[in-house]
Simulated assay, not measured.
Amino acid sequence: MTTGITPLPGSDPDLDFTSSNDDDEVEFLREMCMGKEVVPISDDGEDDSQPNSINPAWISGKAFRLLDLPAELRVHIYQFLLPHNLTISFRSLLLRGNALRWIIFVQPKSEDVSTYPPSFLYQVDGPVFCTHPSVHTQLLLVNKFVSNEASAVLYGSNTYKFGVDGLPHYPISLQSPLIFGPLGTDVHLPLLRNLRSIHINVRLDQHGRWTVIRQRARLDYFVKILKEYADDENKKSLLQELKIELKPPTSNGRVGVLPPTTEIEQYMFSLESLASLRGIKHVEVIGPLDWFAQCLRLCIQGKGGDVQEVEWPLVKIQRRRGLTRQKKDAWVTTRKWYQPMLNWKEFAERNGIPLPEDVDKFWAAND
């Protein structure tokens, strides 16, 4: 009975392939494939007879494992597939039919851009920008371990810049998810807990109290989302770096832009909504008056104690409501829209922060 094995092309015709004895040892002396001789590979993966031959690991049965590499080398490999050490910002573009599209801008954190893959960057006037960085997110689907390491590169090594303006947003204005850019959807909001460096750009687009009201509410919502998707049970922020920038008012001829005479002190207390953040190591505050910037930075870092709320006096007024225009009594606060809700003066005095001579004007009650 034959085994059904036929000689391979180019093999020795004297070899017996029809033997049914299992104890027989058959040794292939040489083998031809596509007109070329196949070099035999030893079990230990080394070929002593051909020192210059290629020895793939998969031929020897020893597959290459990414997770066998040190963590530093794995992270270096991830950086060829994911953006890293960049400042990433978003700009909305309204298309026809009220369709919203987000444009992504990236800028290197350092002046040395030689370490970035060429596909990430292109040169324009001024800094190096890229509106379409290459992101191979398939890496996040390999397994949970690789996903955690790759997420640390994509969300941990980059700075994400978010804009908070004072314009009305549709359909939700005060708690607007548009401040998070494309991450503001229900699916992507949990990703915010992975961010380690955030830059908040608070823009003064309009004049008046509604600018401060919207900015306060949106910054409150910002803090709420960061705490909601935090990792630890106490829901503390996981941020390590936070940069807060209050853009001063400028005049460029557009309708609704603040005049250059508007004082920044009328709008800086909208930032006090961020005072509920605690324990962020590196905090930078740009734009407000220096004494308030120091207070806010110290508070967010978790130093200097808590800031006390101001108990503003209440006054009784009468309002007409309904079709009957019936008068009803109501109690309202004497605090104006540009005045603080927290006692930053007491906080500054407690922590030795120099105050201006006219600081009391911010807490002066108005009749």
Rank of each mutant, 00 (worst) to 15 (best):
A57M: 13
K361R: 14
Y116D: 01
D22H: 11
V310I: 14
V164R: 00
D232P: 06
Q123H: 10
F28S: 03
G322T: 02
A230S: 09
K281C: 08
V257Y: 03
N55A: 08
S49M: 12
V153I: 14
L174R: 11
T262G: 00
W291S: 10
G61I: 01
I353C: 08
F129R: 10
W58D: 13
P259R: 14
V113A: 12
L298W: 07
S134G: 01
G256H: 08
S110C: 13
I103Q: 14
V283H: 04
V359A: 13
L29E: 08
D12F: 09
T261D: 15
G256T: 05
G279C: 07
G45K: 04
Q301W: 01
R30H: 13
D231R: 14
I179K: 03
S110D: 15
Q79L: 00
L204W: 01
P177W: 02
H76P: 02
A99H: 11
K224R: 13
Y229L: 03
E25K: 14
A330T: 11
N85E: 15
R214K: 12
S11V: 05
L239I: 04
S197N: 15
G287L: 03
P340W: 03
G256F: 12
K247M: 03
P340V: 02
N234R: 09
L296F: 04
V75K: 14
M268N: 09
G279W: 07
P259Q: 12
R320S: 12
L226S: 00
M268H: 11
D232E: 10
P177H: 05
R278M: 02
S114V: 02
W210G: 00
M34Y: 11
N366S: 14
V106W: 05
